[in-house]
């Protein structure tokens, strides 16, 4: 261990001395080497610029363009989808409004038809009632006329039998008029 440490000290001294002696070799500037460095670097620069950088830059630009186009297309598609969505929503709203309108219209129409039917039924009923009433009145009138005629005939017959003579036209008319005036036809009709 001691020997090793001693050797290390000696080596350090030797290396320092050698480094000092050869210091010039490490930091010497060699023009020829500088020329070779510059020439080689310029060749590298020329080749890379011409054969590598341009190609990869073109490829990157091309991809950027493609990505930009794809993004534009995506934006366009998104806008179209939004428009479509808005259109569908608008159409749905319109359809809903149409449905409501049609339903209202149908309801109104049904109500109207119902009202019409009701009115028609009422009118029919009224008409029928009126007709019945008219028929009844006509029948009444006919019956009254019949009764009157019967009464007149009976009266004439009774008068002829009581008086024992045949009545002329003036007597008959006068007798009829008097009888009619005395007879309450309505009461008779109602009693019948």
């Amino acid at each position: 261990m001691r020997d090793a440490l001693l050797q290390a000290v000696l080596f350090a001294q030797e290396t320092t001395t050698t480094a000092e002696e050869d210091e010039g070799s490490l930091i010497d500037v060699v023009p020829g080497l500088m020329v070779w460095t510059v020439v080689t670097f310029l060749v590298v620069l020329w080749v890379l610029r011409r054969f590598a950088f341009r190609r990869i830059q073109a490829m990157i630009d091309q991809r950027r363009d493609r990505i930009r186009e794809a993004l534009d297309e995506a934006d366009k598609a998104r806008a179209e989808a939004r428009e479509l969505r808005e259109l569908v929503a608008r159409e749905r709203e319109e359809a809903k409004a149409d449905r409501e309108r049609i339903l209202d219209e149908s309801r109104r129409q049904a109500q109207r038809q119902l009202d019409q039917a009701r009115e028609q039924a009422d009118a029919d009923l009224k008409e029928r009632l009126e007709k019945n009433r008219e028929e009844l009145e006509a029948e009444n009138a006919r019956l009254r006329e019949q009764i009157r005629r019967d009464v007149v005939e009976l009266t004439l017959l009774a008068s002829e039998k009581v008086t024992g003579k045949v009545l002329d036209d003036d007597d008959q008319r006068r007798l009829i008029d008097e009888t009619i005036a005395e007879v309450d036809v309505k009461r008779i009709a109602s009693e019948n």
Binding site: V30, G32, L33, W36, T37, T40, F41, V43, V44, V47, L48, F51, A52, F53, R55, I56, M59, Q62, R63, R66
Partner: peptide, 26 residues
């Protein structure tokens, strides 16, 4: 040193061309 400069230059060119020129695709 010159040999290493040449070798370095050659390898730089080969590396650049290999990575940035051939078979490029999107």
């Amino acid at each position: 040193a010159v040999a290493y400069i040449w070798l370095g230059g050659l390898l730089t060119i080969l590396l650049g061309i290999w990575l940035m020129r051939f078979g490029l695709s999107l």
